[in-house]
Write a protein that binds this DNA or RNA. Structure first.
Length: 335
DNA sequence: CGCCTTTGACCCGCGC
DNA sequence: GCGCGGGTCAAAGGCG
């Protein structure tokens, strides 16, 4: 699937957006979201010229929002809605003719928000495959819901025993990938994760680790892999939405974080006090505030689009998750 | 003892 | 149909 009819893997740039993906101005960073059938690319300008809703103008707010709920469209919408003109979601809907559907971020996000930010049922209505997964909480997600209890009796051999009933294709939840410059693979983001697998990545000396949120009923997963071309880059892919409060916040870490982080940066105190996550953000924050002090040990990657793909030092993983996700995007756009 | 990581095996989708 | 690779399971062991 990731087989690249794409381009030269060594010159591949997942952050390169051909024209029809959407025009963006530097500087910016982007979030990639992929549910394997719907892939969305979020672009966000670092400078929000206008903040109509009085929301936090900081680009980090977007990031924190993403981390908080991983793929909380509602949060994203608010975060990115700093400037409606500059935020957009490109959703190539592979199921519907395959042509990229480009829309304002308010569209999918608003749909989600109508149902509540964390409601697993927040179906994105029509084309919400991801919502379908979460919502009919039944056992379409056999592994998420406490695998031990759900795989009851007989058919726990779901592993080996092929169920007679045709299994519908399990739609994947939307995903977001973050690139982080860090020496440690598993970055602390405030949530508790349990590692449930590790796989070698093809053509990469670095394995990919699979984590699941340890909170009950929470289906969020994340995958962590390291770019083999730039080992200092950690690619973290979140999948799903947290349906609970960030444990770090509950433990009062948020208060500490809020104490450290200047409110002037985060115009919305509530955003900090209740949801701001995590030590992960701190280095980025420090780097932002004082770039000279920040070394590269743990910093969020931003991709100024001023750099042409060929100019960028960082070469994303050829066979990583981003590659997969981006492949679908690029392939969509190529006739 | 509870929680976590490790790791080999298994499942499944996809391309050939 | 087969092989490959990604994703997941679950037993075993480690650690605090």
């Amino acid at each position: 699937m990731s087989d690249d009819k794409n381009n030269d893997p060594f010159n591949y740039n997942p952050f390169y957006t051909p024209d029809n993906i959407g025009v963006v101005n530097p500087p910016e960073f982007r979030f990639f979201d992929d549910d394997s059938t719907n892939l969305s690319m979020f672009t966000h300008h670092q400078q929000a010229p206008h903040n109509p809703q009085g929301l936090n103008p900081s680009p980090f707010m977007s990031f924190t929002g993403c981390l908080r709920s991983s793929v909380d469209y509602n949060t994203l919408s608010r975060a990115f809605d700093l400037s409606c003109s500059s935020s957009e979601v490109i959703t190539p809907n592979l199921d519907e003719g395959g042509s990229s559907k480009k829309c304002s971020i308010t569209e999918p996000a608003a749909t989600a928000s109508e149902n509540g930010p964390l409601s697993p049922n927040s179906s994105v209505s029509s084309s919400s495959k991801e919502a379908a997964v979460e919502e009919d909480g039944d056992n379409s997600k056999k592994d998420e819901d406490d695998p031990k209890t759900t795989c009851n009796d007989d058919d726990d051999k779901s592993k080996k025993g092929n169920k007679p009933k045709k299994k519908e294709k399990r739609p994947r939840e939307p995903r977001f990938a973050f690139l982080t410059k860090s020496e440690i693979d598993h970055l602390e983001d405030g949530y508790r994760w349990r590692k449930y697998g590790q796989k070698a990545v093809k053509n990469s000396p670095y394995p990919r680790s699979y984590y699941r949120c340890t909170t009950q009923k929470c289906t969020v997963k994340k995958r962590v892999e390291r770019s083999f071309q730039d080992p200092s880059i950690v690619i973290t892919t979140y999948e799903g939405q947290h349906n609970h409060e960030c444990p770090a916040n509950l433990r009062g870490n948020a208060a500490a974080a809020a104490a450290i982080l200047s409110p002037s940066f985060f115009a919305s105190p509530s955003a900090i006090g209740t949801t701001f996550p995590h030590s992960l953000l701190l280095p980025q924050f420090l780097q932002m505030r004082n770039p000279s002090r920040a070394n590269s040990s743990n910093s969020m990657m931003f991709y100024p689009q001023t750099l042409a793909p060929q100019q960028q030092q960082f070469q994303p993983p050829d066979h990583g998750l981003l590659h997969d996700m981006l492949n679908s995007v690029v392939q969509k756009k190529e006739p």
